[in-house]
Design a protein around this nucleic acid. Structure first.
Ligand SMILES: [Zn+2]
Length: 102
DNA sequence: AGTGCCGGGGT
DNA sequence: ACCCCGGCACT
């Protein structure tokens, strides 16, 4: 029913993945406390102060790693350049897709 | 060639 | 905040 732009600009960017400020919509509480996320401790503060690294992931530390492209069909491939208006907002702006999010 | 995304830029 | 492209990694 309608969908005035006072909320959900694209389902409010999809999901209540808001923490940080989206909490307002769900809480409707008058007190917007910027405190906190349930930031837990580092599971035990110093799990093992040793060189924990045998050969797991990591090719180059100073690199974001490779790009394991997925065979998913996202907004762009599904609809095509001729219907860009149907893509999700992120795809429209050449950002990471939020609708499929593979 | 084409998709998919970060970084950067305009309003 | 909202709106995009340059250029890059990858297929
Ligand atoms: Zn998308």
């Amino acid at each position: 029913m309608c969908r005035p732009p006072h909320e959900d600009p694209e389902y409010q960017r999809q999901l209540v993945g808001s923490y940080r400020q989206g909490l307002l919509s769900t809480m409707q509480n008058g007190s917007a406390r910027p405190i906190s996320i349930p930031l837990s401790h580092s599971w035990s503060n110093s799990h093992s102060p040793k060189h924990m690294r045998l050969s797991g992931v990591s090719g180059s530390p100073g690199s974001p790693g490779r790009r394991p492209r997925s065979d998913n069909k996202k907004c762009r491939k599904v609809y095509g350049m001729d219907q860009r208006d149907l893509w999700c907002t992120q795809c429209k702006w050449k950002k990471a897709c939020t609708r499929f999010g593979d």
